[in-house]
């Protein structure tokens, strides 16, 4: 019986929106740092200088002005390695999240809309898939198909598509019950057209939110695989391998561990808050 006329609200810069803007700010910083890494990084991330090993960060006595966040046990600049590490983290998260999202959402849409035999096969597959412990699965997978970034991305997509498939299937089923789907049939739409032009726009906000969340997860998985040396070669600067190396020196050079850990934490947190925020921004009805 709601008969009120609503007017569209313009997007405003509000304190409430900080939940959207702060993560965006951090991610934008990361992107700029990653793209222009050679400009921003003060040093070559691979250059070792055993004369300058385990230099502390700038706010502690004994630091060198050239090494803002200190150096690791091989004398490599921590800040420079983190900036180059952002490159890998972002690359992996974007490619992995999108391939996971496209694959999982497609299956979810098909299962939720076509139902019947399609739904039974896809849902069983999801059940079976989810019975595997994910990290172990990833480690095994990378061990079998070999290390390297492509393998990491492939492993993430192959494991996490179920997240998309489950959520999007449920959302699609809800949307498929709505009268506008029947009214598309009445209006002569083919099934595929109904799915793509009627249902998909209505589940898109959820897909976007999940994509952001998945980017955070991809960063973590990449870090885990680096940590156990199953990502790219340990010389290459990734946050995971930095954390792994820093762990051994935690008592006398904690910064090697702490700074990449903070970067990892902020990135994952940003992606997941961004997901929720985006979902609200993209939804004209729920706002």
């Amino acid at each position: 019986m709601v008969d009120a006329t609503y007017s569209p609200r313009p997007m405003r810069f509000k304190v409430r929106n900080l939940r959207l803007w702060l993560p965006l700010l951090w991610i934008a910083t990361l992107i700029i740092a990653a793209v222009f890494a050679p400009i921003f990084a003060p040093h070559d991330p691979l250059a070792q200088d055993l004369m300058l090993e385990r230099l502390p960060p700038f706010f502690i006595d004994g630091s060198e002005p050239g090494h803002l966040l200190g150096t690791d046990s091989l004398g490599r600049d921590v800040l420079s390695r983190m900036i180059y590490g952002a490159r890998i983290a972002l690359f992996v998260s974007v490619i992995a999240a999108f391939s996971t999202g496209i694959f999982g959402s497609t299956l979810g849409l098909i299962a939720g809309y076509y139902g019947g035999w399609w739904d039974r096969v896809i849902s069983r597959l999801v059940d079976i898939w989810m019975a595997f412990p994910p990290v172990l699965f990833a480690v095994l997978l990378v061990a079998v198909i070999g290390t390297g970034l492509t393998s990491v991305i492939f492993a993430i997509a192959l494991i996490d598509w179920t997240r998309f498939a489950r959520v999007i299937r449920a959302e699609t089923m809800v949307q498929a019950q709505m009268d506008y789907v029947d009214s598309a049939r009445i209006g002569g739409a083919r099934r595929m057209a109904t799915l793509l032009s009627e249902i998909l726009p209505n589940v898109l906000p959820s897909i976007i939110a999940l994509l952001a969340l998945e980017m955070g997860i991809a960063v973590i998985v990449e870090a885990i695989l680096s940590f156990v040396n199953l990502s790219i070669s340990s010389d290459d600067p990734t946050w995971g391998s930095m954390i792994s190396e820093g762990r051994g020196a935690i008592h006398f050079a904690w910064w090697v561990l702490l700074f990449p850990l903070i970067a990892l934490f902020l990135t994952v947190l940003s992606f997941s808050t961004l997901g929720e925020g985006l979902k609200k921004q993209f939804d004209p009805v729920l706002k």
Binding site: D179, Y180, S183, I186, G187, G188, P201, N202, P284
Partner: peptide
């Protein structure tokens, strides 16, 4: 045939796609 068989729904909120 459907062009000749049209329908007006009970709940116009759910029968009009909210995204269009």
């Amino acid at each position: 045939l459907r062009r000749d068989l049209q329908m007006i729904f009970q709940d116009p909120m759910s029968s009009l796609n909210p995204r269009h």
